[in-house]
């Protein structure tokens, strides 16, 4: 069910502040696309505009086009709620619902779609999603305990299970490993490599090795200067970005000769 994403001339605003300008990018289905760049250059902002989470912030808006398999995300008749059901998101800080059990966390999205799901079917889906997120063996004996009782890495995998349970077409991940230790990070990277068989994945990361390890394509965002909007400076296959980038700025950033 993975889909391709075409973004053209996208400007993203917070009120009157232009945070990101003129993004053009084509994201391939069934692949991992990494977004890198210095802090504050608008990676999160761009990512959140791909599932219309950006407009949740008062005054925030976008101009331009985001097309997913031919459908304009920002079309006048498109309901953002439907968009978010198709395009899942994993946040930087693990955020399982603290008032829900592990089971209910995973089932939360399924229950939302308001279809009456049979108990057995739901059990099955919860198990499959937890297995998909490599968490099943660790939590299968305590599905009714609160999700907030898990470790940070487990919570993040729970959030991934919750996101994939609704079978989205695209999975957006904003620095999903930044709060995790190297082992949990590796577990999540392995997971991403499995998941890309089924989903289109876009991940924001500050970890170059991570981008190099997991992604097929990499986009480099940068700020032209203080107070200037962020831009997508370069978008190329990951190998090229890390060996022979087109732009000087990319090379400087990657080799740590930045600023």
């Amino acid at each position: 069910m993975a889909k391709r994403i075409d973004v053209s001339d996208l400007d993203i605003y917070y009120g009157n502040f232009l945070a990101v300008q003129g993004v053009n990018i084509s994201i391939e289905p069934r692949s991992i696309t990494a977004l890198i760049g210095p802090s504050g250059c608008g990676k999160s902002t761009f990512l959140r505009s791909l599932n219309r989470m950006h407009e949740v912030i008062p005054g925030a808006r976008v101009e331009g086009k985001v097309v997913i398999d031919g459908q304009d995300l920002y079309g006048a008749d498109v309901d953002p709620v439907d968009v978010r059901r198709q395009i899942g998101m994993v946040f930087q800080r693990p955020n399982p619902f603290p008032t829900m059990s592990i089971y209910d966390n995973v089932a939360a999205g399924l229950r939302l779609n308001a279809k009456k799901v049979k108990k057995a079917e739901l059990d099955d889906l919860v198990e499959r999603s937890l297995k998909g997120a490599n968490l099943w063996t660790e939590v299968k004996d305590r599905l009714n305990r609160p999700g907030s009782g898990l470790s940070g890495g487990q919570q993040q995998r729970l959030c991934i299970a919750r996101a994939i349970a609704v079978e989205p077409e695209v999975l957006l991940m904003d620095e999903p490993c930044s709060a995790l230790d190297p082992i949990s990070t590796l577990a999540i990277e392995d997971l991403m490599t499995e998941l890309k068989e089924r989903f289109t994945i876009v991940i924001v990361t500050h970890n170059m090795q991570q981008a190099a390890r997991v992604s097929e394509s990499t986009g480099f965002f940068n700020l032209a200067g203080v107070g200037q909007p962020g831009r997508l400076v370069e978008f190329n296959p990951t190998e090229k970005i890390f060996s022979n980038p087109d732009e000087k700025a990319t090379e400087d950033y990657i080799s740590g000769r930045f600023g």
């Binding site: 989470m53 949740v56 059901r85 939302l112 919750r162």
Partner: peptide
């Protein structure tokens, strides 16, 4: 954090 988690799941 949790409000956004719900919205990102496609909650009204």
């Amino acid at each position: 954090l949790h409000r956004e988690a719900a919205l990102a799941l496609g909650a009204t």
